[in-house]
Amino acid sequence: MVQQQQYTVLGRFPGFELRHYPAHLLAQVTVNSGFQGAGNAGFRYLYAYLSGRSSFPASYGLELSGWPASAQRAGPGLAMTAPVLMEPSPIPGAFCVAFVLPADLTASTAPVPEDPAVSIVPVPGQAAAAAAFTGRWSESNVQGHLAALQSAVTAEGFTVLGSPRFARFDPPFRPWFLRRNEVLQDVEGPGD
């Protein structure tokens, strides 16, 4: 069973669920690729990081799964988490692809990526509107769901903050009609 990012449901509205995500860490890579190819290109870097192309920081100070904290290469790896997140990068034509790291890791205990393309990024707690959908992971499908989510959020009096995130929960071999996907948009609500 794959660990999923935790959140608290704050409310349900027509077309979306309002959630609070606690502060967390991402293992993130920026890839210069179109929407269709970004997920696959980014996944390769992130999977290598999770599989052990990393080292534990000296501050870790204990053993994890039997590997000493002093291990410099090929650490034990980390458990896979869901979802895989993707969002537009500030770099034109590029996307940031990320895994949410297990909740028990901190910025000082997360394994250090061996590949400089992979960054460990702290994310503060945030409120986000989420809309789940099934189906193919195509840009037109995702953008259609994003437009519907942003319209529903605005209709309820919330303000859209920052860039949207696109979440994939299932492996590519799962039949398209069974795949769980989400569009997420940080928001500020009335009275916040």
Rank of each mutant, 00 (worst) to 15 (best):
residue 85 L to E: 05
residue 133 F to A: 03
residue 182 E to D: 01
residue 147 A to E: 05
residue 73 R to M: 09
residue 167 A to L: 08
residue 7 Y to C: 07
residue 10 L to T: 09
residue 98 A to N: 14
residue 165 R to L: 12
residue 22 P to G: 06
residue 158 F to L: 11
residue 90 P to Q: 04
residue 145 H to P: 00
residue 180 R to D: 08
residue 19 R to T: 01
residue 12 R to C: 02
residue 133 F to V: 00
residue 54 S to I: 01
residue 129 A to V: 01
residue 8 T to F: 14
residue 142 V to N: 08
residue 143 Q to N: 12
residue 79 A to W: 06
residue 139 E to V: 11
residue 163 S to F: 07
residue 139 E to P: 05
residue 22 P to Y: 01
residue 115 D to P: 05
residue 124 P to C: 09
residue 39 G to E: 11
residue 47 Y to R: 11
residue 21 Y to K: 07
residue 123 V to D: 04
residue 77 G to Y: 04
residue 186 D to S: 15
residue 12 R to Q: 06
residue 108 S to F: 05
residue 91 I to Y: 15
residue 25 L to K: 03
residue 42 G to I: 06
residue 98 A to M: 15
residue 54 S to D: 01
residue 60 Y to P: 04
residue 88 P to R: 06
residue 101 L to C: 03
residue 64 L to W: 13
residue 28 Q to N: 12
residue 19 R to N: 05
residue 49 Y to A: 03
residue 57 P to D: 03
residue 24 H to C: 11
residue 170 D to Y: 04
residue 166 F to C: 09
residue 9 V to M: 08
residue 182 E to L: 08
residue 135 G to Y: 07
residue 44 R to N: 13
residue 97 V to H: 02
residue 88 P to Q: 11
residue 88 P to D: 06
residue 106 T to G: 14
residue 63 E to A: 08
residue 64 L to V: 15
residue 55 S to N: 07
residue 72 Q to S: 05
residue 28 Q to F: 04
residue 166 F to R: 01
residue 113 P to L: 06
residue 89 S to F: 05
residue 127 A to I: 02
residue 185 Q to Y: 08
residue 163 S to C: 10
residue 162 G to S: 06
residue 48 A to H: 15
residue 51 S to K: 03
residue 8 T to R: 12
residue 55 S to E: 02
residue 65 S to R: 14
residue 31 V to S: 07
residue 161 L to N: 13
residue 29 V to E: 13
residue 177 F to D: 13
residue 112 V to R: 04
residue 88 P to C: 09
residue 191 G to W: 12
residue 15 G to K: 01
residue 46 L to I: 04
residue 176 W to H: 10
residue 99 F to E: 02
residue 64 L to D: 14
residue 76 P to L: 10
residue 76 P to K: 01
residue 36 Q to C: 10
residue 83 P to I: 05
residue 58 A to W: 01
residue 36 Q to S: 14
residue 4 Q to R: 15
residue 150 Q to M: 12
residue 166 F to L: 11
residue 14 P to K: 11
residue 185 Q to S: 09
residue 3 Q to V: 14
residue 64 L to R: 07
residue 11 G to F: 04
residue 115 D to T: 01
residue 114 E to D: 09
residue 18 L to A: 02
residue 101 L to H: 03
residue 179 R to L: 04
residue 86 M to S: 09
residue 83 P to Y: 09
residue 6 Q to V: 12
residue 102 P to L: 05
residue 152 A to W: 05
residue 33 S to Q: 15
residue 149 L to E: 01
residue 144 G to Q: 04
residue 82 A to L: 09
residue 111 P to V: 03
residue 67 W to S: 10
residue 34 G to C: 03
residue 79 A to P: 00
residue 37 G to L: 13
residue 148 A to Y: 08
residue 109 T to N: 10
residue 125 G to M: 05
residue 23 A to E: 10
